[in-house]
Design a protein around this nucleic acid. Sequence first.
DNA 1: TATGAATGAGGCTTCATTCAT
DNA 2: CATGAATGAAGCCTCATTCAT
Lengths: 191, 191, 191, 191
Amino acid sequence: MSPRTEEQFEEIRKSRKYQILEAALEVFAQEGYHKASISKIATQAGISKGLMYNYFSSKEELLKAVVEHGIEGIQDSFNDIDDDLDTPEELMIFIRGGINVIRQESHFYKLYFVVLFQADVYEIVKEKYQEMVGSMIEDVACYFKLKGHPYPLEKAMVLGSLLDGIGMNYLMAPEMYNLDIIEKIIFDIFK
Amino acid sequence: MSPRTEEQFEEIRKSRKYQILEAALEVFAQEGYHKASISKIATQAGISKGLMYNYFSSKEELLKAVVEHGIEGIQDSFNDIDDDLDTPEELMIFIRGGINVIRQESHFYKLYFVVLFQADVYEIVKEKYQEMVGSMIEDVACYFKLKGHPYPLEKAMVLGSLLDGIGMNYLMAPEMYNLDIIEKIIFDIFK
Amino acid sequence: MSPRTEEQFEEIRKSRKYQILEAALEVFAQEGYHKASISKIATQAGISKGLMYNYFSSKEELLKAVVEHGIEGIQDSFNDIDDDLDTPEELMIFIRGGINVIRQESHFYKLYFVVLFQADVYEIVKEKYQEMVGSMIEDVACYFKLKGHPYPLEKAMVLGSLLDGIGMNYLMAPEMYNLDIIEKIIFDIFK
Amino acid sequence: MSPRTEEQFEEIRKSRKYQILEAALEVFAQEGYHKASISKIATQAGISKGLMYNYFSSKEELLKAVVEHGIEGIQDSFNDIDDDLDTPEELMIFIRGGINVIRQESHFYKLYFVVLFQADVYEIVKEKYQEMVGSMIEDVACYFKLKGHPYPLEKAMVLGSLLDGIGMNYLMAPEMYNLDIIEKIIFDIFK
DNA sequence: TATGAATGAGGCTTCATTCAT
DNA sequence: CATGAATGAAGCCTCATTCAT
């Protein structure tokens, strides 16, 4: 067997890292930052505690990486929509996108809330989050301004908050929230 | 000289208990259940760690008591409204009530979220919360049914979620949320 | 009401002290020295923790007093017998006395073992105990010497140990030990 | 350089575990369960407090393991005898075995008593002890039944109690108990 | 004399992190 | 690169003891 090339090592590292990030996302979301233990995350990722520290220098760094990783996922989900937001139809698509994130990225969404309300944890990832949220709100505010709404920014905030609230409650009791109907109601409100 | 009377002891206990509950509410809301330490809560309350256990038998019990204490506060805020919810005016009063809670009971509101997303912690106070939230949603659903809305329950959930979302975001960045304008927008939506 | 006389005070103190000693004996025997809490003993005695310290300056002092108190009880039980030990009949009476102590003073007997095997606790009351045990062994050894036994001291120790062992096991499972039959067997052995 | 093999890890764990069990046996026997601190046991074993929990999940589990460990030791001491108990010679061997346990496994013997009289502690290891004691008593009762004794079970209990009592007193003051002479006396009694 | 609030040391346990191999 | 043994700080909780009233 010839020794592995540098590229192969790089490949291994990348896939390991992904493995760890996925495991960490799940555990953080399930248990919260402080309750989640490195040990459990390592087990979930199928590696040893020691190896974790080869990839992430501390629990905090791991969380930061998980959040970055998750934001990328969210942004991918929104990417097709984000571009333009001019017509009501596009707003509907945006809203539907938001609700789909709730449906599909529930792990990350949960982490989002878990992290948001853990002051010391939030500090760690504040910047990344605000960047993500800010740009979305801005886009939507643009739309409402275009439509002549007197308080476009606040209206956008209301929409954003509504989606957050739906997501939050849906995560708590998915069986009670019929997202299809709720989507219709939201359409009806913001059309 | 002479020993304290029973009333004196009761007085001491009552005021200490209040003192601890307030401190705990603040620290739990700030730090989350797991990060908040009994030690810190005791310091915040100006007492020794040991004394905490003279009033609450465990951290869990303390949390339960804090939540109960907080719910009482909330219910006081809503007291005048709870009764009937028939006219749009009454719904407006209800919404204003919700927003006032966000404004005034921000500690409890934060605790509400902090607890909601920590599965193991939520388990501790599930019952108390569900009772509070359930009855409110029901009242609002009744209103929408009365008004002939096709999905009254879901509509009520949307309103509830919106208030939750507003509360959440307001807590994260109060300086960015103009609650007066937002109140108007919500009125406009649900009138 | 005329103020209480000094004698009355003395009377109260004595009866309180007795009350505490009885409660402590029970709790110590039930829970062991380290597990037993002053709080529990006080409750059992029907007084406050603080008052305990008016009568006994520390937990250790309390234990010492309990043991002294208990030894007095045991010695009373043996008093009628101890005097002379010359005939087999008298030995029988002695043995029966020992077994009756097991039957009747089980609290103290239990404390005896509990204390005996708690090195630091034993240190506290070593002297008292050894004094009590030593004098009994001596008496019995005298008897066996009189009877011409080659190792009277050891024989006495065997009898003493047997009674201790019976007591120990009886306390662990009284329902399994038929003391009447066992008494007969012992008689048979040492007659 | 290269990572440890699984066998190396196993070796480490086995020897550490033994080290801890020995230390724990000594400290538990010396101090009793409640007084013995994990801290002290760890120090005695020459390891850190934290490491203890890598091997035993709690103080209770540690005690259980220590008792099991001790019972194995005892059973080794009795191994040659256990089989049959038919002739007086075999009973003598049994008795000698019991006395040798007193002599050689004094730590465990002391633990036996320490645990026996701490109700809550006894509860932890009840099963293990009862199994050990029960089978011994049974064997001896069988012997006395064979010999036509009217109360074989009680006679066996008397022998068991005698050994317990000897053990107890020997542990309290080994210098005063000449086990060789006592052995002879016991032989003489039960022959 | 009598109470129980208050303290603080110490015990059990968890867990992020380090390190020898 | 990979493992898990090992450490130590920190957290929850208990309890003997003190003290104001």
